[in-house]
Structure formats: C-alpha cells, structure tokens
Amino acid sequence: MTDSLLPVDTYLVESLPEIWFGAVLFALGMYVVLDGFDFGIGILYATRTDEHERETFLSAFGPVWDANEVWLVAFGTMLLAAFPRVYSRLLADNYLVAIGVVLALVFRGLGPELREQRNDERWKRYTDYAFVGGSVFAPLLFGMLAGRWLFGEATLPVVLTGVGLVAVSVVTGAAFLAAKTEPGLASELRTYGIGATLAYLSGVIVLLGTVVLTDAGGAADTVLSLPVAAVVALSVAVGLIGSVLARRGQYRAWLASALALPTLLTILVAILLYPTIYPPTGLLVREVVVSPLALNLVTVLGFPVLLLVLWYFKFLYGVFSGPIEGEGYGG
C-alpha cells in the first residue's frame, strides 16, 4: 500500500540524509537562540534586587519560555527519528551531564511558576534560587553536552563550550530585555550585554585555539579551515557591531545582531560535525541514518508541520511584541 505513496528503497531526494542533518541542527539552533535568551533573562534576574524589576523580567519570560523549550524536545526527537544511534550514544555516553541538563530545566521551569503561588519572602527567595540556578546550569551543562559531542572527553574544550553558551545566553537575554523595557533599566542591561559579548568572543577564540593545540576530538584540521575562520570572523564583527548599537541605545537593532551570535554558533557546530555526526566515535551521517522509507515518511509528514510551527512562533511573538506590559507571572 505504501509502495505507491512513498519510495521504499530510495530517499525522496538523493541528499535527504544531509537535509536531515541540517534539519536537526536547525532545531538545535532554534533551541539555542530562543531558550538562550530565556536563560539570559534568568541569569540577569540575579542582578536585580528591586521587586518591580524582577516582575518585569518574569513578564518577559512568562508567555514564551515553554514554547521555546519545546525546541529541545524537537531537536532530541528529530535526532532520534533520523539518527537513532547518535541519539543513544550521545546521551548514554554522557549520562550524568544529560541528566543534569534535565534536572536544571526542572528547576528553571518551576521556579517562576511556584514563585507566584505565595506571598512570602522566604518562599520567593527559594524559588528565585531555583530559577537563577536552573538558568545558569541548564546552558552550562547543555553546552558541555555539546562539547562532549564535538570534542569527546577533552575537559577544557568541553567546559569552555558550556561557559560559551552561558555567555551568549546573557548577550541575547540582555538584548531581548533591553528592547522591551524602559531606557533606565535598558542602559544597565547593555553593560552586562557588552561584557558578555566580549567574554563570549574571547571564549570562542580560546576554545578554538585550545582545540588546534591539543587536537581535541581530532578537530584541529577542521578548525583551521576557511569556513570556521569565516564564521569566527563574522561572529566577531557581529558582536562588535552589536556592542556599538547597544551603546547608541538602538536596542532593537542590537537584539537582531545579538540573535545572530547563537545562530553563528550553531553553524560552527554544524561545520565541526560534518561529515561525521558524532566526531569522537567517527560515525558518519550516511552510516547512521535510518532507512529510506522511515526517513521519507518523517520528511513528508514532518516538514509541513515544521513550517506550521514557525508560523505559530510568528503569531506568538506578534501577540507579545512591544514593551512588556503589566507585571508578574501567572494568568
């Protein structure tokens, strides 16, 4: 019955495995960009002591974080659907880091939800710890998981990847908040944003330098290639331009350039992975991809839905565009 509908022995298009490699990385990029600024909000939240400002941060975070977090599930399940071996090995080989990510996400998600349930100073303090702690550890550990994916067990590159993801999250979080809040608060946020941008850029350069020197994960040659140099140069340019825009108070333009940083980071990850898909194991995209029928099926059913999902996000961010209104969390 299916023979007539979908090819069983050949991929719909010859390069479908590579397209799926791109699709999986696209979902990862969406996660890193969108939940990244949620993490940034959570980290910058720690710098606020004023209740009004904290409530403002939570109002910016509330309507969107849950939808943003679903991109992690989309990334994981798409990886499982197309490259099951990579999904299993990546998570099983890095057991404690992976479980650490999900536990950090539990705290990050529950903190603000529970905070609103009670008017009690001590309760608020504990739920704030959960929110801030989760927002720091989730990107740190998720970045470390990505580091293990790229570089295997080399400690320094792995830790630097984690720290880099934290730093870039602070950049996007600061820019997102600055674009949506009043000027006084925005100018404080840009100081953190610019600092984090410089930290991020130097972190990336130190990381890649370390990889070249130690050949972590056998990635030294790839790092010295032209595409990597181009992405790094572009990141530096975008980061510096963004900092200038922030200084001038052009926060919407700063936000646009800030969001380009995690996007470029994801492209960097893609370059470092391909044509393998789990460099420390040497597994190639073509070796571990599922059979043609299975991949054709998830393509035909899944890609139109992916477009629909992008439309949902356009709608969601449209509804909640503009300055943050009201205060607090909860319906």
Binding site: E69, V70, L72, V73, A74, G76, T77, M78, L80, A81, A82, P84, R85, Y87, S88, R89, L90, L91, A92, Y95, A98, I99, V101, V102, L103, L105, V106, V290, S291, A294, L297, V298, L301, G302, V305
Partner: peptide, 30 residues
Amino acid sequence: IPMSFQFGTNFPQFAEVAGELIGGPLAFEA
C-alpha cells in the same frame, strides 16, 4: 523532557533498535 532523554541515557539499546519505529511518532508528538 526527562522521559524522552531517558530513552537515550538509560535504554540506548531500545532507542537504537526501535529508533526507526518510535522516532517518527515521538518527533510528530513534539
């Protein structure tokens, strides 16, 4: 989220053996 992670962290042989069959529906669910 821990549920979908645990297929990989704790039961990777299951995820690998059944990946073609369960990966699609799980991705559609997301």
